[in-house]
């Protein structure tokens, strides 16, 4: 089993740091395991407790990803940590990233039955990488997964997926697929261990994971492009069809209404505002 995690800036106050121009100062801001990746790691941990799965974790980016890998290891008691680090990987779009991660996951020992990823990242990633890795691996991709169970005899997985579509009520879809699969975990994912024995196992692994993660470096394997054996034309900037061409401010939309401006410190104005609100609500408007 593999978990793909992503390192993200820690957005909490006190940890975050800004450059004078207002942009994020990535060097000073602490990095952490992204919340979506954390949920993915938790979901993988479920398989470890329930089915005795062996877990490997994979992450891209520079040396700072170590923290994320350690946190991921604490969360899911991974046995192998993969880090893909090479200047050639830099600047990749989702297609280029997917190629690297595919190569890495294929390099993992043993057969991967389930690959987990987060839903998307909170600092701008788009949720495309997961399905693209899956396609390159030839695994069915199941997104928005809120719970899952594996049938070890039949070698199948059953998942529940939460689909939200514009103008439609949300749908929970139950899907069955043969292993191996790639699943992306929805933020609302939840699992529970319902028996004493599962809970004891879970507590045991968690404790051990925490201890083991102190020496996470023993399990860390770092790969560059050569070690991964990837085609240089398919990774990094060269393997990325898309580029960011420009960043600009979104211009103000055209005024569609003409607002009456009231002063919040004037009681008369407050009275008026409330009266207008009540009027709006009582109006006999048929919509």
């Amino acid at each position: 089993m593999a978990v793909v995690v992503k390192l993200e800036p820690d957005f909490s106050e006190g940890s975050i740091s800004y450059n004078p121009d207002g942009t994020l100062n990535r060097n000073e801001t602490k990095s952490t395991l992204g919340p979506h990746s954390r949920i993915a790691a938790q979901a993988a941990f479920y398989a470890k407790v329930k089915y005795g799965a062996r877990i490997s974790v994979a992450s891209m980016s520079g040396h700072v990803a170590n923290t994320a890998l350690q946190q991921a290891m604490q969360t899911c008691d991974a046995e192998v940590l993969h880090l893909y680090n090479d200047v050639l990987f830099a600047g990749a779009d989702t297609l280029g990233t997917a190629e690297t991660l595919k190569a890495g996951i294929s390099k993992m020992e043993g057969k991967m039955d389930i690959v987990f990823s987060g839903h998307r990242a909170s600092d701008g990633e788009t949720g495309q990488t997961g399905p693209q890795i899956a396609w390159k691996l030839g695994f069915p991709f199941l997104g928005h997964v809120i719970s899952y169970d594996v049938n070890l005899e039949k070698r199948t997985i059953t998942v529940k997926r939460l689909l939200s579509l514009q103008g439609m009520p949300d749908v929970i879809e139950e899907v069955e697929a043969p292993l191996p699969v790639f699943i992306a975990i929805d933020p609302s994912y939840k699992h529970s261990f319902d028996t004493v024995s599962e809970r004891l196992t879970s507590e045991k692994y968690q404790r051990e994971a925490y201890e083991r993660a102190k020496n996470y470096k023993d399990r860390l394997q770092v790969f560059n492009s050569e070690k991964l054996g990837v085609n240089r034309g398919l990774i990094g900037l060269a393997g990325s069809p898309t580029i960011v061409y420009d960043v600009q401010r979104v211009p103000k939309g055209k005024a569609t209404r003409h607002a009456e401006v009231l002063d919040g410190s004037n009681p008369e104005h407050i009275r008026k505002a409330v009266a207008r609100m009540r009027e709006a609500l009582s109006a006999m408007v048929t919509k």
Binding site: E13, G14, Y18
Partner: peptide
Amino acid sequence: QEEQLRIRFAVTKLIK
């Protein structure tokens, strides 16, 4: 507002 926020975060971090 961005500047106010930046100052607040910077002070929080320094005090910590």
